[in-house]
Design a binder for these strands. Structure first.
Lengths: 281, 281
DNA sequence: TCGCCAAATAATGTCGACAAATATACGAGC
DNA sequence: GCTCGTATATTTGTCGACATTATTTGGCGA
């Protein structure tokens, strides 16, 4: 999806330049990253909506916009605006927003406009703590239960991760990372845990790109993945557990740093962008 | 399972005798247990719906019926039926069902009737494993972070638990147990973890009563709580961790036993109860 | 000029209706 | 008698409309 023309209305995704700031190297990978976001979100939020229903389409797209920081934290998500934009009634929009609320990307207060959920450092801390513990258990299980096919799948993904790392392609690295964790959780054969981890991942995905901006963080992350896969190959469950927990705590520390330095662009106090009287279809 | 009488309309809560089978001693605590279920569900599913909105009312009541095994596993939850029963349109019903789906009590396949989620042993196993790990971390945190007020609250609740145990009141014991865990998770000051644990608890609440039917299980559970509180009082985080994990694994073992013995009344293959033309208002 | 209160505006929650899709009942064929 | 295909009957997904409730605009007073 390229430039959203129709220059006047504020309905289009704004400030692409801002998004640019996070894409370190490959400028053309913007839309590709967005597509990745849509795919991941579809996997997580619309897993049961097998067929491309209306609500799943809206949920995926809006969710991707949030994850890609096209919609800023706290920004209003008026159901009528979205209904106009997707040329549908408000009922499916409402349901899509409910799906996104379930994943923690959107908040829907009673009788108030839904808005993009804000992720303060306290909540991020909580999420990372939970993820660390759960991921530890999952990695531990994966180390014990993984099949050869799982192992092969993980190796393959690690190669992609490494390639993205070498190419200094931040966006590619990010999504390869997500997919690596996806395969890892699958290897533990615990769908309940996977669901929870996926949901928690989604919540912090907005910050992930920020955190990986730091080169030292990326180095550490890459090294970590190599170690982790080795531990799983050797079926060293305790080591896998400790490794992944440690990595999460480091990632959290990096995030705390970013928040402390004001590197997180989040404020935006819920003032609604004025709707222009938009023309026809 | 008991007689599915289908006397007049099948819209009312049926087979109270069936519920009776699980209430070991106090026959009058039936409705009280239902009320407890409603309260707990309101706390969990409708936490943001502060004001008593329509959807929260429906969600709480239907959810309570599921948890109390008044609605059987797999039973259809037609939105028109519910709309009739609550004298409202289908829109709020739909949203209420979505809320319950989010908590795993209901499944809503596309273009098919929603139905009470079935909880097979595999999923129960997954849930208990996740809960064990997460609860371990939470208990660990609680041991370190608990304030004196938290401690007092836990002691008080343990007393109630003990009283219910001495009175052989299964239902009271069950709900006191739920509240004890609620206070415990609060003492860890991690709302994300609490939310997840609450949701997982809700999913297994239906089975909990079954599991506690076994007297030895109740003895063990009671003893466990005493030990756990002691560990938290002494700020022995590792001990709290191990204790709660161990308890969960024992509970799971009891469940496996029940499933193996066919003690779980769950089957019911989604055939819809025939609607009778119900009369006026 | 700034802050508080009231009218006006816009958004949400709910409703009843309709089209598409599914589940049920009925009847034919073996 | 039982299984399979077809017609009927519900049911879901979506829509546009309305009442109620927030939000914003505009006015008044200090």
């Amino acid at each position: 999806m390229g430039a959203d023309m129709e220059g006047g209305t504020s309905l289009n995704r704004p400030d692409f330049e801002q998004a640019d700031a996070w894409i370190a190297t490959a400028p053309s990978s913007q839309s590709e990253s967005f597509l990745n976001a849509v795919l991941v979100i579809r996997r997580i939020v619309a897993e049961h909506h097998d067929r491309p229903s209306l609500v799943s389409r809206v949920a995926c797209e809006v969710g991707a916009e949030i994850v890609e920081n096209i919609r800023q934290s706290g920004e209003d998500l008026s159901s009528v605006e979205l209904a106009e934009r997707y040329e549908t009634s408000r009922t499916p929009i409402r349901e899509a927003l409910l799906l996104l609320e379930k994943e923690g990307l959107v908040r829907i207060p009673q009788r108030r406009r839904p808005h993009v959920a804000v992720l303060d450092i306290a909540e991020a801390r909580e999420i990372y703590r939970v993820r660390a513990v759960l991921f530890g258990a999952v990695a531990s299980d994966a180390a014990r239960l993984r099949t050869d096919a799982d192992l092969e799948s993980l190796r393959e993904q690690l190669a992609r991760l490494s390639a993205a790392h070498d190419a200094h392609d931040l966006s590619a690295y990010l999504w390869a990372n997500v997919e690596f964790y996806n395969r890892l959780t699958m290897a533990a054969y615990n769908n309940t845990a996977k669901r929870i981890l996926d949901s928690l991942l989604l919540r912090t995905l907005r910050l992930r790109r920020l955190s990986l901006t730091q080169p030292t963080r990326r180095e550490r992350s890459m090294a970590h993945h190599v170690q982790l896969l080795a531990a799983i190959e050797e079926q060293d469950a305790p080591l896998a557990d400790v490794l992944i927990r440690s990595n999460h705590l480091h990632a959290l520390a990096a995030l705390e740093q970013l928040y402390a330095d004001g590197g997180v662009p989040l404020p935006m106090r819920s003032r609604r962008r004025r709707r222009q009287a938009a023309a026809a279809a």
